[in-house]
């Protein structure tokens, strides 16, 4: 039998520290796109709660914790992050494996907000974007999902194929923030 070796999206690119800001690649576990079928949102939320311990997230929010999260991912869609999806979910929602589709990085440290302010056209300061908030927006030219997770860190998901650009853009912004001191 042949052996397939896995490679992470940001292999060789991260971690990175510039000034006080750190950027790491995270291994989020399984990523599953969960799109409730018509009229199934409530039922789905219950199954999600029972199986994974958190409800279906409201728009612009994330539920769950380090082990298992449900991140609102757009119109009629959430991303289940961490566990393999309970098969019962499939009765209520279209499930699609996205575990390999997204580069997942964590940006943290003082100044992380300033770094994102250089790339994202949304107010991500803690006052308007506290822990548990999540959003879809642009990160310079690419689309991204950004969630404020524990310790004020940001979990950023971007297309796997764009991982190099993601790191480049973040690094450029990190350098500019650091240079200002």
């Amino acid at each position: 039998m042949v052996e397939l070796v896995a490679r992470t999206p940001c292999a060789g690119l991260l971690p990175l520290r510039v000034g006080a800001v750190l950027l790491d690649e995270v291994a989020p576990g399984a990523l599953t796109s969960v799109s409730p079928y018509k009229g199934q949102a409530e039922a789905l939320s219950k199954v999600l709660q029972a199986a994974h311990g958190m409800g279906f997230p409201a728009p612009s929010r994330a539920t769950g914790d380090r082990q298992a999260r449900a991140i609102w991912f757009g119109h009629g869609q959430a991303m289940l992050v961490g566990p393999a999806p309970d098969p019962a979910l499939a009765d209520h929602a279209a499930l699609t494996d996205q575990s390999d589709a997204w580069a997942a990085v964590r940006l943290h440290g003082p100044g992380a907000e300033d770094v994102l302010a250089r790339l994202v056209p949304v107010d991500l300061r803690a006052g308007s974007f506290p822990e548990g908030h999540s959003m879809r927006s642009l990160l310079f030219h690419m689309t991204a999902s950004i969630t404020r997770i524990e310790d004020g860190a940001f979990l950023i998901l971007a297309f796997r194929s764009m991982a190099a650009t993601l790191v480049h853009d973040l690094q450029t912004a990190m350098e500019a923030v650091a240079a200002r001191g």
Partner: peptide
């Protein structure tokens, strides 16, 4: 209605 007020560039 889902994301809040956003810049034109997202649309």
């Amino acid at each position: 209605p889902l994301c809040g007020t956003r810049d034109r560039r997202e649309f």
